[in-house]
Measured scan of single mutants.
Amino acid sequence: TEYKLVVVGAGGVGKSALTIQLIQNHFVDEYDPTIEDSYRKQVVIDGETCLLDILDTAGQEEYSAMRDQYMRTGEGFLCVFAINNTKSFEDIHQYREQIKRVKDSDDVPMVLVGNKCDLAARTVESRQAQDLARSYGIPYIETSAKTRQGVEDAFYTLVREIRQH
């Protein structure tokens, strides 16, 4: 089974770092803004072998026109913010609204991801993020692309959301 996953969120929150940590098991430290990259990885989730087709997208506003296209083809979405960047957390709402509009559905598989949880300088409390996820009816997972904490959990949870859909 193949799953088309799309990673969305503001610029600099760590979308590529999360994806590369999942696929290649290493942490990319330097920031190089993405336009669009796709990665494929075969994994076993709950005993089922599946192929993850992951689209890593641009957070930069100037590429926002490309969003409709990949939102149409994606089956599930990782909505990523950084726990030390309140603005990126506030941006999640717009991504969710755009996904709902493009998919013409209120019920699209999504996982809210709070990345950079290895950093002490948190400005978005776990509780705020949990409340937001609960209001959307989606899971919330904290990750660190640096330490790998929660990385597999985030992507695998999204696959489970798609399966249950």
Rank of each mutant, 00 (worst) to 15 (best):
T34L: 00
S135D: 12
V43S: 06
R101M: 04
D104R: 03
R40P: 01
Q42N: 08
T34F: 00
I92N: 10
K116Q: 15
G47Q: 06
Q128Y: 13
G76E: 00
M66V: 10
R160W: 11
D118I: 00
K146P: 15
T157F: 13
D104I: 02
E36L: 02
E48M: 04
D91A: 08
P33N: 02
F81K: 02
G74Q: 12
P139W: 06
I20Y: 03
S105E: 09
D32L: 11
V108M: 08
L5R: 00
M71S: 04
L158N: 07
T1F: 05
A154E: 09
T1Y: 00
G137A: 10
M110V: 07
V124A: 13
L112Q: 13
Q164T: 12
E161W: 13
I99P: 02
S16G: 00
K41I: 05
E75D: 08
L112M: 07
T123G: 11
G47D: 05
E2C: 08
Q98D: 02
E142I: 09
V43R: 11
D46H: 08
I23C: 08
K41Q: 02
T73Q: 08
V13W: 01
Y39K: 06
L51G: 04
A121P: 13
V8G: 01
E2R: 02
A133C: 10
V124S: 11
A58P: 13
A17C: 04
A82L: 02
K100Q: 02
E62S: 05
A145Q: 05
N84F: 08
D106A: 01
D104V: 07
T143R: 07
E97N: 09
R96F: 07
A154N: 06
Q42H: 09
K146E: 15
F155M: 15
C50W: 12
L132M: 12
Q24Y: 08
I162S: 12
V111I: 13
V80D: 01
R160K: 09
T157R: 11
K41F: 08
L22C: 13
G137T: 12
F89V: 05
L119P: 15
M66D: 15
S144C: 15
C79Y: 06
R72K: 00
I83P: 14
T157C: 07
D53L: 06
S144E: 15
E90K: 05
Q60W: 15
P139T: 11
D118E: 14
K41M: 05
R101Y: 01
Q128R: 10
R67Q: 13
Y63V: 14
Q128F: 14
I141K: 11
G74S: 03
Y31K: 00
P33L: 01
K100W: 00
S126L: 11
D53M: 05
L18R: 00
K4A: 09
E152A: 14
F89I: 07
S16W: 02
V7I: 04
F155A: 10
R127W: 14
V44Y: 03
L132R: 10
N25I: 05
R40N: 02
I23W: 03
Q128P: 11
Y39W: 06
P109A: 07
L158P: 09
G11K: 15
R101F: 04
E97T: 06
R148L: 15
I162H: 04
V80H: 04
Y95N: 00
H26L: 09
V6F: 13
Y136C: 09
Y95H: 00
S105G: 02
E75N: 07
C50G: 01
N84M: 11
L132Q: 01
V102C: 08
T157N: 13
N115M: 15
V7F: 06
L5E: 00
S105M: 10
S105T: 09
G14K: 00
T147R: 10
P33T: 08
M110G: 00
I45L: 03
R163E: 11
H93L: 09
S105H: 07
G74N: 08
D37L: 00
R163L: 13
L5N: 00
Y63G: 15
Y63D: 15
V111A: 11
G76R: 07
S144P: 07
D106V: 10
D46F: 09
G59M: 06
I99S: 02
T57A: 08
Y31C: 04
V6Q: 03
L22M: 02
N85E: 07
H26A: 01
V6G: 05
D106S: 08
V113S: 07
C79T: 04
N25C: 03
L5G: 00
V80F: 13
V113N: 08
K87I: 03
R40V: 03
I20W: 06
K4F: 01
A129S: 10
K146H: 15
D104E: 05
F77Y: 10
A10M: 06
L119R: 13
L158T: 10
V151E: 14
V13E: 13
M66S: 14
A129W: 09
Q94K: 14
R122N: 12
L51S: 05
R101H: 04
H165C: 14
E48H: 09
D104Q: 06
S88V: 02
I83Q: 08
K15W: 00
E90G: 05
E36W: 02
K103E: 01
Q42F: 05
V111H: 08
